[in-house]
Design a protein around this nucleic acid. Sequence first.
DNA 1: ACAAAAGTGTTTTTTTTACACCCATGT
DNA 2: ACATGGGTGTAAAAAAAACACTTTTGT
Lengths: 220, 220
Amino acid sequence: MDIDRRYINQIEVLTNVFTIDKNSLKVYLIRRLEEPFKGYWMLPSNLLMTSETIEECALATIEEYVGIKGIHIEQCNVFSKVDRLPNDRILGNSVIGIIDEETLLMHKKKTPYEGVWFNIDEIPKMIFDHANILKDAANHLKSHLNNPLMLKMFFPSDFTLPELQIVYEQILGKKLDRRNFRKRILNLGILEDTNYKTNNKMGRPAKLYRFKESEIEYYE
Amino acid sequence: MDIDRRYINQIEVLTNVFTIDKNSLKVYLIRRLEEPFKGYWMLPSNLLMTSETIEECALATIEEYVGIKGIHIEQCNVFSKVDRLPNDRILGNSVIGIIDEETLLMHKKKTPYEGVWFNIDEIPKMIFDHANILKDAANHLKSHLNNPLMLKMFFPSDFTLPELQIVYEQILGKKLDRRNFRKRILNLGILEDTNYKTNNKMGRPAKLYRFKESEIEYYE
DNA sequence: ACAAAAGTGTTTTTTTTACACCCATGT
DNA sequence: ACATGGGTGTAAAAAAAACACTTTTGT
């Protein structure tokens, strides 16, 4: 490989893995084991290999550090400041991953990395520019909230409107009116009633919905 | 630089430079001089150097190929398919640049590249995945149309509402009602009347507006 | 019967759409 | 006076926001 050294770049793929757990939006962070910033938290990341796409690298990274594979991911942003890291020049490519808590528990494999799910508004000290990258990813989530393909990934299967409302509220960071929310979502015409209901321990059972298949495919 | 060769990547910055000229949205393309795809058209591009940011590379590329410097640019998208180019594995980072025709004519320097402004709906045969990248950039333009910082760049200085309407119509690809457009834009509260008017050769002079400074800075 | 959570309807306000005539200038 | 392009208002429709009581279940 005889390429001009001036054009050799390293790219790290930084993954922002989100879930909704106990009615809160959470993100998965791991601890940094080396100096500087030893003990600080970071986004699971890997250098991009020449043999893989950003998406492949992101999925491999999530499998390696979070212990879960094949989740939904989205390209997010690129961070190219020359001094974003103290020593090396590495481009940062931020990717969002979404997983529901139930699927996570079912399919999580043991990893040597002791990651923790942090509530999105209780983010600990993070290394380098990771806090900034995470904040940007949370904004991305907000501005793409109506993507059914993305929303779907917060649930293991069918879901209720109160559950969906919690996803909206957590990502938007504000409470929504239940009646107006139902009207708005159902009017979109992207959900269908499964005719099933939850059997909760308490309270009235809720109707279960799913995204219409035809609506999921086509979204920009 | 003794880095693992598996993590050595090359990144090209592909610039989508837009302008509005004669009431049409145009993009600047140059010709490819080598095989394969000799004679086909391409987005002005350069490999990213380790010493520069994506933005710096994009600006340098636009200066080199288009002959204009210091224009407004925006990060767009990353294309990382391993086989997007036939021989090398090079990541594509797409960037949007915007320039108004008048500033272009004033400040354009001679370049050895004979670029042409193509109407957005009359794009010629393009190399590799460039047509796809350009289409994606045009979509980006559409979805960020309300960014005052971006809109501002279509004009050399103050502008009239009919002129702004043409920008909207061209980017959206559809006609808008004049009265509703005025109402909507003025209601945003981001424009201020300069109290000046155009002196056109024909017809009634139009009021000149500008973006309020305070509104330009803060936009996500 | 009570506690818990889900479901529902109406009114008001705001935003969006549709639509046609008058005004200011140069020739 | 006329041709050219710019400016304006109103009514209808649609979407969003505000707001509180009833229903279904488990205990």
